[in-house]
Computed example of a mutant assay.
Amino acid sequence: MSHTPKTFRDIEQFEVKTKNLQQEKHLQQLKVLLPSLPPYVFKYFQKNRKRSATTLFNYANDYKLFFNFLADNNWVLETINKDTISPVDIPITILAELPLEEAEEFQGYLDGKYEQRTVNRRISALKSLFNYLTQKSEDPKTKEPYFYRNVFAKIETTKVSSDPVKRADSFEQKIYRGNEDIRFLDFIASDYEKALSPIQLRFFLRDKNRDLAILSLFLGSGLRLSELAFLQLEDINFEENSLGVFRKGQSGKVYVTVNPRAMDELKEYLHTRTENYGCANDEKHVFFTRYKGSYSPLSIRSIQDLVEKYSKAFNVNKRLTPHKLRHTFATKHWTANKDLIGLQTQLGHTSSEITSSYTHVGKDKQHKNLENMDKLED
């Protein structure tokens, strides 16, 4: 069975409609990933150009993980009678003959590393790929699909409960509660540097204003990681204390309100940005890093790493992610305002059912309320 090899020219000419800067960046990152995937997978992406660049980029990452797994799999190596193989060279016959046991092993691998929603999404991406290869593809010679056996159709995923109470319970212990978020920011501002070596201190002082701005924005607005990572100077409105972002389901930019402390931290960072990173004053991207004498936009991965680093230093038993900082903001917003529609708008949720999770956080206060009621009966 033959497959048209994908060339760099094919990849350069691969285009998907993009609506904003974030999707344009994901398209470029997708083009970087495609050469590491087998040719028949590239055909899948050509067939699915109507999907957003962000969705296709996420799928490419899922497939890269899967083919890396196959390249290290003993059954694969024994089947092709080789000691090693590159993921890009995995023959399509491996997918056609992949035993259910090996597919379930990959699912188990995911279960050990990721949350259930992420596992489900990655299995869903593979179901989509295998559905294309077994039903919608066409081999140039046979005019038939590449193969007919879809092993991932046999893989069942674990349904994630939509019960808002259960969803709230799942993350209540993984967020900052009460005034813990304020103490966390104060710790970074005043105490974190006390335990650093001279070299660590030098880099921390360079990045301090930037990192405080990032952490404050997560905790003071509920921004998503991608929204913060792709923030542009033109998106900032200091007069209205708001930031413009592109959100799913929105045709244009929407403005998200930010608390004054976070905007002050952002302003302080912008005052030192050019001096610390060497970028021009009018450089459109907001957050930068500096390496070997040149500056570049701060990546999503770098933002994730700095959140984990600081939260671990603050409390080794509570390592947070940007998403957990967003949960922290949402929980605090609900506790203070009891405004479900306002919170839904602030977070950019398309469904109030998702937002309602936060209305069930705060069981300690519920217990206290009942205790106070009991006291009235004495």
Rank of each mutant, 00 (worst) to 15 (best):
H271G: 04
K47F: 15
F106P: 01
A189Y: 03
Y44M: 06
T7L: 10
D62Q: 01
R202Q: 10
F130K: 06
R121Y: 07
T158I: 15
L30D: 06
Y40L: 05
P297Y: 07
L217Q: 05
D364W: 04
I123M: 04
I90E: 02
P39E: 02
L325E: 09
Y63G: 05
R202N: 03
R9F: 00
Y358H: 10
L110H: 01
A213F: 07
A336E: 15
Q107R: 11
R117A: 11
L77G: 03
R122C: 04
V245N: 03
K25M: 08
F238G: 09
T157D: 00
F314L: 06
A336V: 04
T134V: 07
G112N: 11
K113W: 06
M1S: 11
K19G: 15
T355V: 07
R261T: 10
Y277G: 05
V41T: 07
L110D: 03
M373W: 13
P99N: 00
Y132H: 12
V88S: 11
R273M: 03
F67P: 04
L228K: 05
R210P: 02
T54N: 09
V119A: 00
F14P: 06
V32Q: 14
L33F: 11
R301S: 08
K318C: 02
R273P: 08
A280Q: 09
V76N: 01
N281T: 07
R121A: 12
G244D: 13
N120A: 05
S356N: 12
E180V: 09
N281M: 10
F69D: 02
K253V: 10
N317F: 06
G348C: 12
N237H: 12
F230R: 01
E239R: 14
Y59I: 12
P87Q: 03
K248A: 07
V254L: 00
P164W: 01
T84R: 14
G178E: 15
E377G: 06
P198S: 02
N317D: 14
H285Y: 11
